[in-house]
């Protein structure tokens, strides 16, 4: 038991991995082998990056001790800025960075307001959820802009690649981002500061970490990834709808939490957030395959989220009790 707890404390995503394997096996058996066939896996991998990229950013930010509910709106705003510019005949190489710039600006605003006025980021970003969504609708004028044919280099982002067209280019982008952010968190001094800031703010401050800047950087990275993910979805769909990404913020938080990220900050891994995102996609897909009414998806997602938090809280309590023992 002790050993198990120690492993858990070091690898909080472990429970998620186990759960993923169990669920995968169940779906595979239940669907008579359809779940893991090439076509279905292709379907899962094709959609995964969009949500997983958002989950990566949200996980990083939660480890830093903050929260972002505006990612779903940024997911729509960033490609809308790009789309409107493209429709005006601006080149992709200006429109794309402009969209990402808008995302960064939202992140910067979230960070500065949260820190400057010392309010919970839950509130700041709840407000930003509405502001950014509204901005998206306003700049679109209510209709999706007509993006000229060939204005977006779709091949570089959403074309099918790999053996048997197994995944889209977006999957490779996602992999690259996942590895980069994991390394950033796990191997760099910046990652150390993120964990310290989220783990115990007074200690980080007393060690001279610029905690405000660390948090703002995480807010911006989180927004940037959400905007990038939205851009990928728009390239896949061909047109920027002002309504995309609605509810995504909650799925991303669910993914992070299912993957073992603590709501209190300091604990969690990028891999955990990704596992959580995969789990959500697998449940979605598995339920469809099992011919379960699609309306059950949210029920399953909600149940799993609460279950994950309960399990995590229980494990952490056990771990604490263990510590008290070693004190005496």
């Amino acid at each position: 038991m002790r050993r198990l707890l120690k492993i858990y404390m070091e690898k909080p995503e472990l429970a998620g991995i186990v759960f993923l394997l169990v669920l995968g096996t169940i779906f595979q058996i239940q669907s008579g082998g359809v779940f893991l066939n090439a076509q279905n896996v292709q379907g899962i991998l094709g959609l995964l990056p969009e949500m997983a990229l958002v989950a990566i950013g949200v996980t990083l930010l939660m480890i830093c001790g903050e929260f972002d509910l505006s990612v779903g709106s940024v997911f729509a705003l960033c490609p809308m800025v790009m789309g409107v510019l493209l429709a005006d005949g601006v080149s992709f190489w200006l429109a794309f960075p402009a969209g990402l710039g808008a995302a960064l600006l939202v992140g910067l605003t979230n960070g500065i307001i949260t820190i400057r006025f010392n309010i919970p980021s839950f509130i700041t970003t709840l407000g930003m959820l509405f502001v950014a969504r509204s901005a998206t609708v306003v700049i679109s004028g209510g209709f999706p802009p007509m993006i000229p044919q060939g204005a977006m280099p779709r091949d570089a982002f959403v074309a099918f690649v790999g053996p048997g067209d197994m995944f889209r280019m977006s999957f490779l982008w996602f992999l690259a981002v996942a590895i980069l952010v994991s390394l950033l968190l796990g191997r760099t001094n910046f990652g150390n500061w993120v964990r310290a800031t989220g783990g115990f703010l007074p200690a980080a401050q007393s060690m001279g970490i610029p905690t405000a800047r660390v948090k703002i950087a995480c807010f911006m990275l989180c927004s940037l990834l959400a905007g990038f993910a939205g851009t990928i979805q728009v390239m896949r769909l061909g047109a920027p709808l002002p309504s995309i990404g609605e509810g995504l913020e909650l799925q991303a938080v669910a993914a992070a939490v299912i993957g073992g990220t603590a709501l209190t900050g300091g604990i969690g891994t990028i891999l955990g957030g990704i596992i959580g995102a995969v789990l959500i996609r697998v449940i979605d897909n598995g339920l469809v395959l099992s011919r379960v009414d699609a309306d059950w998806f949210k029920m399953a997602l909600g149940g799993l989220t609460i279950f994950a938090v309960i399990v995590n809280a229980w494990l952490r309590k056990k771990a604490r009790a263990m510590k008290v023992e070693t004190n005496t």
Binding site: W193, A196, F200, A203, I209, I267
Partner: peptide, 17 residues
């Protein structure tokens, strides 16, 4: 009240910042 982050390893705590 401790200048250590409980959720981090000893080695990482030693070198914060």
């Amino acid at each position: 009240y401790n200048s250590m982050v409980p959720t981090m390893s000893i080695a990482r705590n030693m070198f914060i910042g």
